[in-house]
Design a protein around this nucleic acid. Structure first.
Lengths: 161, 161
DNA sequence: TCACATGCTTTGATACGCAAAGCAATTAAG
DNA sequence: CTTAATTGCTTTGCGTATCAAAGCATGTGA
């Protein structure tokens, strides 16, 4: 087993963990993963965003966002408000119920990571950052520009940055 | 921006890349991501496996596997063969068409990673492996045992291990 | 004003995924 | 051997995710 294989296997373990985690997280929160992502993005954006912005950030079509927003609206998690400045636009705004949902989301994996990371020595943290950024650069297609929210969920519950 | 944030962002970039990659890959191959995963697993298993084994490795239900296999069968990518030893079992076998599909899959991201990784100095490779395994361990839930195939695709096109 | 662009929704379709029920074959118990 | 439990797979019925294309309303430029 060479290093390349080892690194690929480790990568897969990481992907697998985050995949499983996002399913559990969403289920615990009582919404589907895609719906939870919408709520998380809204929260990270200060509470509201346009469908267009959501679609871009999630990497899906506007039609898909419409469907997700429909679901969340019928559950009272978000509200649609027509923009007064440009009537074509709609502001999707997270409600109190939506906020409760994201706050109640246990976020187990993220917390686990944060906890483990902060336990590391300074030099180890630096090494991890360097390594992860290196790998990310290796994988990045050229079209990567924005920093969209991913399955791991936004930095959340940690009011730092 | 502290190191924790940086590492989380890098992680997200990694996840995002693999996510996008798996969509592109599948589309280029003319099958859906889930279907391609089936073909890749079959290939990595020497050409055939039971639905049960596929379900376990993919982390989905048998019913789902049945549906995927139905699709692939109707496209001539796989064949179903009743086991002679235990008639309850079915062997799902990849066909020549299925093999062509996986071989034609550009596998751009994996190749990119492999290429970049092999360019690294020895000590850098060692560092990456250590860091990735560390992160994987940090994220791993306790229930991790098998090493299922993930979105990144199986180690493939590299006849090493 | 008229043509075009933009933002969102609707429509119609495919895919993914599961639970529960069903069927066939094997194994275990009596 | 016969019955009961188990195992492997498929079928059925359902909900979600996703998209392309068409539609509608609003803005903008010529």
């Amino acid at each position: 087993m060479d290093r390349l294989d080892e690194s690929l296997i480790a990568l897969r373990r990481i992907l697998r963990s985050t995949e499983l985690y996002s399913k559990d997280l969403a289920q615990a929160a009582g919404v589907t993963p895609a719906q939870l992502r919408v709520l998380q993005i809204l929260q990270s954006k200060g509470g509201s965003a346009t469908p267009k912005a959501l679609a871009t950030q999630m990497g899906v079509s506007q039609a898909t966002v419409t469907a997700l927003v429909d679901k969340l609206q019928s559950r009272g998690m978000i509200e649609r408000v027509r923009s007064e400045l440009d009537r074509r636009q709609t502001n999707v705004t997270i409600t109190q119920a939506g906020l409760s949902t994201t706050d109640d989301a246990p976020d187990a994996l993220q917390q686990r990571y944060v906890k483990e990371f902060t336990k590391l020595d300074d030099w180890e943290q630096a090494m991890l950052v360097a390594a992860l950024e290196r790998v990310a650069a290796m994988l990045d297609a050229d079209d990567m520009d924005a920093s969209p929210v991913l399955t791991i969920g936004d930095i959340h519950g940690r009011p730092s940055h």
